[in-house]
Nucleic acid binder design. Structure first.
Lengths: 171, 171
DNA sequence: TAGCTGCCCATGATATTCCAAATTTACACA
DNA sequence: TGTGTAAATTTGGAATATCATGGGCAGCTA
């Protein structure tokens, strides 16, 4: 799972070091896919071969000529950059994606479970602030609490046994 | 279950010993996650791989582009530090988290069932005082009583048999 | 030939691991 | 109940490994 947030930088040659923990998460593969986040937040989203395989399987389930499928294939498949890390764990960010996400100089890598995000630091700070404010909402905590107890019930057949390592939770 | 409260200290290099009972609770794993508590109380919250696996399962249940999920992924997944204990059970607290929770010198570890909290001692004392005052409220005790008898019913098939050790309740 | 790209090595900073001393805690025995 | 011994834990510091980053060089492309 891609967890935590790391800072990195674009060097003079347009190269970026992928944080080591994220590299480890790619399981030895050096192929990285990058595209613009679908939610309009202005960051890039990325992942490795495992994620792309999941997306492929997911998109294949959608009806071939459905509008939904066409949109998602366009945004994620056609819109992706297909990059290869060098020996020291760096990739070269394509200019169009940098421009779209307003990336230059220092950037932020943020874990997003199965994928990660790449942010302009100022935008990321603003995003964090809005998320922090939203987290205080009772609705958010209530929804989280409901989902958490559902997971507990599922695991423990009705009564509380404490958290367990969920199957497939990590590699 | 993470129980009780322990005091510890941050050394000159920013390292902190995890209290031995909490270490035992991590079940041999040396990976620790730390993030800012969602409730705005100003402490850090932490747990091990089991808790993070639970959170992952929980977040996966929420609709992918829902606001609730985005908020929680931001706060818990992206907002977590992914730390590794050394041989003697210490972690290095990231500076940004220390700053956010006003941690320096001595700190408090407080058990929180599935997770634990890390507090600035003065803040913790103030929190304790407010909790002690609130515990006297009839509403609190009433809610506790209701929940307690629900659990009893669930365990004892409808009538009171005295409390039981729930299967797997402790190790 | 100029610029871009991929590949490689060098280096400083940071993080991790290892070792050892000091302190606390637990236990057995008188 | 007090004391001595052993074990575990906490603490401090140094050696080592890892990582991010800058730059060099060759090959390809336009």
């Amino acid at each position: 799972m891609f967890v935590s947030t790391y800072e990195s930088a674009i060097d003079a040659k347009g190269r970026v070091s992928i944080p080591a923990p994220f590299r480890a998460e790619l399981g030895g593969s050096t192929r990285i896919f990058l595209w613009q986040a679908l939610d309009g937040s202005g960051c890039l989203e990325g992942g490795g071969e495992a994620l792309m395989a999941m997306y492929r399987a997911t998109l294949t389930r959608l009806a071939p000529q459905s509008e939904v499928r066409k949109v998602l294939v366009n945004r994620i498949i056609a819109g992706s950059a297909d990059l290869k890390m060098d020996e020291t764990g760096r990739i070269k960010l394509p200019e169009d994606l940098c421009k779209a996400a307003e990336l230059e100089g220092r950037i932020k890598f943020a874990g997003n479970m199965d994928s990660f995000q790449i942010w302009n630091p100022e935008k990321h700070a603003a995003y964090n602030a809005s998320m922090e404010a939203a987290a205080a909402s009772p609705d958010v905590m209530a929804a989280f609490g409901r989902a958490y107890s559902e997971v507990l019930h599922q695991q423990g057949a009705g009564h509380y046994n404490g958290p367990k390592l969920v199957e497939g939770g990590e590699g």
